[in-house]
Design a protein around this nucleic acid. Structure first.
Length: 594
RNA sequence: GGGGUCGUAGUUCAGUUUGGUUAGAACGCCGGCCUGUCACGCCGGAGGUCGCGAGUUCGAGUCUCGUCGGCCCCGCCA
């Protein structure tokens, strides 16, 4: 092993070319691959920036060549040598530095390495647990490094854009208080205050509102948020938001500013020139046409409502559902009449996952409508259906019949599944869509009360204040979501800035005056001390980066992510703690010690 | 809380359907040869708690039950 000493790196492994011929350079990095011919030895040296081929030639320098025989994967090297053009026809067009190589005359071995537990130089699929256990190796792989680098560029573009537009980056507490509503909190016991707990923030929502009341006017933060809920491919318990709040604004200003921010972010990361304004759709229209509040509008297969067409129809199953207040909707899968019985069974099973109790279908053939259910319908009913669905020979009609919620969910998922199978999605497109006019509240049948669709601080539509006490479920809010390719990547709202309005909304949520005072007293007090009109938005950085890097999982764009069981295989967190630590916190758990 | 799927050499996988001699392949690793490769090539070799634990059986990688872990999904995620 050699010391680094005072040796200085002159270039990285991605910048040398024919402009540097005959220069003496010093490179440092890791051995990616070695090709030892017995005589000449080639090493691909890798760093964060790229790969450069270094050469050991026994005729030029026998001692260094001898030393190079021992080099193995992931050894850490410093080399001094001359930049040489590669011999004719020996250039490697796959490498940016492929026109040159470094003829080494000094080799310092800075560190050896055990054989890595998985290969870093190939596209071999390695299990997630192994990758995460050795995340520092996983991140050396160029494709992973590229994702981390792109994430940095995104954060830098956002900071630059927002700073240039009058926003202040202000930190908010990580140790804060648990609030009702929303997700399960991560809790932190207080040592100094026995029996009391901090909560990690689900978002800095109330703090950014406090900053508006403090006159900061425009705030942003790239901030970690925490929600103790189960994980998914696009969901981690700790995640990062670009969090923003502005004073003296309405929806249009926030939308315009964030569109420009997203434009700057896409230019900086992917060199993609977006052209705002983005499309918009109301919540009601999205639910009606696509069955979801985050529709992927890169393809059709829209939901067609047949409830009125089929009211009183001869098919008992549909008719009784309609009579009980349910709905019948359908998707026309263009050209899918060729689906086999097996395909259809498969789709039915898929639909079952989302609560469908079955799935009726009709194949539109040239001479007949082929289906187990056509016989139940009159000629007029079939004609009316065909017209509503624009059914042409070769089409396949898939029905959802149940309560509105189930039909919407089932058909929305079926629509996505079909688009995937039929390859209808253009992967090159970035399809942005604002969803507006969300309902303020929704009824929770389990809790038997209304809950906030966005959060309890979202302002109701200005002209619907009266409805709040009479028909709270019908009130629209001033919330908006930004959807990208069917993923919710951001959401926000104009907030309530007057105490009376906030009290009214809390009451509609079933929070009485005393509880409101206990949990939100500081907010209510602040609202009566000169709170300006304000609103904001937050973007999910992880999901956005997942789309930008075309990753399958959110874990690929997080340097140190959690497994689906919310553990970290690298550090083995969460871990047991000592009895002493528990005692200091005055915690006396009743679980059994090992 | 629930459903699905996977777990075999360092890695990726075959073998499990139908239980049966010494559990295979590729890559990697180790040794030898090799002066223009770039996924270098050629020759040879080592390498296994078939996730773990019970059970059935004359006999279990293979069947049963339990358990642990990875991943995907439902619920959950204002």
């Amino acid at each position: 092993m050699d010391a680094l000493g005072t040796l200085l790196r002159t270039h990285n492994c991605n910048e040398l070319g024919t402009d540097h011929l005959a220069e003496e350079v010093v490179l440092m990095g890791w051995v990616l691959r070695r090709r030892d011919h017995g005589g000449v030895i080639f090493i691909d040296l890798r760093d964060r920036w790229g790969i450069t081929q270094i050469v050991f030639n026994p005729e030029i320098n026998p001692e260094v060549h001898q030393k190079a025989h021992q080099l193995r994967s992931e050894w850490v090297l410093a080399v001094r040598g001359r930049v040489e053009a590669r011999p004719d026809d020996m250039a490697n067009p796959k490498l940016k530095t492929g026109a040159i190589e470094i003829l080494v005359n000094e080799l310092r071995i800075l560190n050896a390495s055990e054989t890595p537990p998985f290969p870093l130089d190939e596209d071999v699929e390695v299990s997630d647990s192994l990758r995460l256990q050795y995340r520092y190796l996983d991140l050396r792989r160029p494709e992973m490094a590229a994702k981390i680098i792109m994430r940095h560029k995104a954060a830098q573009a956002v900071r630059a854009y927002l700073s240039d537009n009058g926003f202040l980056e202000i930190e908010t507490p990580v140790l804060t208080r648990s609030t009702p509503e929303g997700a399960r909190d991560y809790l932190v016991p207080s040592r100094v205050n026995t029996g009391r707990f901090y909560a990690l923030p689900q978002s800095p929502q109330l703090f950014k509102q406090m900053l508006m009341i403090a006159g900061m006017d425009r705030y942003f933060q790239v901030v970690k948020c925490f929600r103790d809920e189960d994980l998914r491919a696009d969901r981690q318990p700790e995640f990062t938001q670009i969090d923003m709040e502005l004073s003296f604004v309405h929806e249009e200003e926030i939308i315009a500013i964030t569109e420009k921010m997203i434009k700057a972010l896409f230019a900086a990361t992917r060199n993609i020139d977006l052209t705002p304004p983005f499309k918009r759709m109301t919540y009601d229209e999205a639910m009606r046409r696509f069955g979801t509040d985050r529709p992927d509008t890169r393809f059709g297969l829209e939901l067609i409502d047949l409830t009125e067409t089929l009211r009183g129809c001869g098919f008992k199953v549909f008719n009784s559902i309609i009579e009980k207040g349910g709905v019948v909707k359908a998707i026309n899968a263009k050209g899918c009449a060729t689906f086999s019985r097996k395909d259809l069974d498969n789709l039915t099973e898929y639909a079952g996952r989302f609560g469908a109790r079955g799935m009726a279908w009709i194949k539109i053939k040239e001479d007949e409508w082929q289906s187990p259910i056509t016989k139940f319908f009159s000629e007029d009913e079939l004609t009316a259906m065909g017209k509503a669905l624009d059914a042409q020979p070769g089409d396949l009609i898939l029905f959802g019949a149940d309560s509105l919620n189930i039909v919407q969910q089932v058909l929305a998922e079926l629509r996505l599944e079909l688009a995937g199978r039929l390859n209808l999605i253009d992967r090159e497109t970035f399809d942005f869509l604002w969803i507006t006019d969300f309902p303020l509240l929704e009824y929770d049948h389990e809790q038997k009360r209304h809950t906030a669709v966005h959060h309890p601080f979202t302002a109701p539509a200005e002209d619907q204040m009266e409805l709040l006490t009479t028909e709270p479920g019908k009130v629209k809010s001033r919330a908006y979501d930004l959807v990208l390719n069917g993923n919710e990547i951001g959401g926000g709202s104009i907030r309530i800035h007057q105490r009376a309005v906030q009290e009214k909304v809390l009451r509609a949520l079933g929070i009485d005056k005393q509880e409101a005072e206990e949990k939100f007293g500081f907010l209510l007090r602040a609202l009566e001390l000169g709170a300006p009109p304000h609103g904001g938005i937050a973007f999910g950085v992880d999901r956005l980066m997942m789309i930008l890097t075309e990753s399958e999982s959110i874990r690929d764009v997080i340097a140190f992510p959690k497994t689906q069981k919310a553990t970290c295989p690298l550090t083995e967190a969460p871990a047991p703690i000592s009895r002493k630590q528990l005692t200091e916190l005055s915690l006396r758990p009743d679980w059994k010690e090992k």
